[in-house]
């Protein structure tokens, strides 16, 4: 089996008449943590959504674990051990916290349940206190934890986190970053999109910067830390 979990080859994506991705090549190897950076509107979310089969107008190829899945339905891609924590969360507000978690639970591709319901509650004690609350009653931070916990219950090999700390209070953000580090430490491959570039540089192995729908550059995070000029050029920081 290939050790490339997810790969985009010459990927183009469109929303109606607008051409968002212009031939993006992007690889996620097992075990790495990738920071996906770029200013607003440069195609980070579209790249993720296109690889997951959620953007219907596409050209190019998407490979999951080495197999071509460009035209596969989103649920089949997800079942290959790929979990998605979308921008703006995506909890089910009309389901209780417990139901949000239970409905998603599934064995991983290897057939094992590494993340069980009990383990999720131990990892997110705040959720354990609110099991019977409706999703709509949660605070922003709790919603984010629920989305991450729910994604983990699908026992993924790869977790895609899109703006997981967006719109949260600083204290809660710090908690979410800790959780992300904890997830990393369990060996789950992660792709992180976030506005906090220094946090991403600290925890990622590699960064990929998108600019106007193309990969502007890729670098080891250690190298990027030593070349602040590069980031400044593409990200304006």
């Amino acid at each position: 089996m290939s050790d490339t979990l997810l790969e985009a080859r010459e990927l183009h994506a469109y929303y109606g008449a607008s051409h968002i991705l212009h031939g993006v090549n992007f690889r996620v190897e097992r075990g790495e943590t990738i920071g996906l950076l770029g200013r607003n509107g440069m195609g980070k979310t579209t790249l993720i959504r296109s690889m997951l089969g959620l953007v219907s107008q596409r050209d190019g190829e998407v490979l999951v674990r080495g197999s071509l899945m460009t035209r596969a339905a989103p649920h089949l891609i997800a079942r290959q051990g790929i979990a998605y924590v979308p921008e703006g969360r995506g909890i089910f507000p009309n389901l209780s916290v417990r139901e949000n978690l239970v409905m998603a639970a599934r064995a991983g591709v290897d057939g094992h349940y590494h993340w069980t319901y009990e383990r999720i509650l131990a990892t997110f004690p705040r959720l354990a206190e609110r099991l019977d609350n409706g999703g709509w009653q949660l605070s922003g931070g709790e919603q984010q934890m629920l989305t991450i916990g729910r994604a983990l219950l699908t026992n993924p090999d790869l977790l895609l986190l899109d703006e997981a700390t967006e719109g949260l209070a600083p204290l809660i953000r710090r908690e979410i970053w800790k959780i992300i580090q904890h997830i990393q430490a369990t060996g789950i491959t992660t792709v992180i999109v976030d506005k906090n570039h220094s946090a991403i540089l600290d925890i990622s192995d590699r960064i990929v910067v998108l600019n106007k729908g193309q990969v502007a550059f890729e670098a080891n995070s250690a190298d990027a830390r030593n070349q602040p000029g590069l980031l400044h050029r593409y990200l304006g920081v």
Binding site: L54, A73, H75, G90, F92, L95, N100, M103, A104, R106
Partner: peptide, 25 residues
Amino acid sequence: TRLGMMIRAGASNREMVQSLGINIQ
């Protein structure tokens, strides 16, 4: 039941249900 949860979840966010590996179709 889990099927019922999926049905209700589908009413609020179809795409997210799919991204959890559930065949909403």
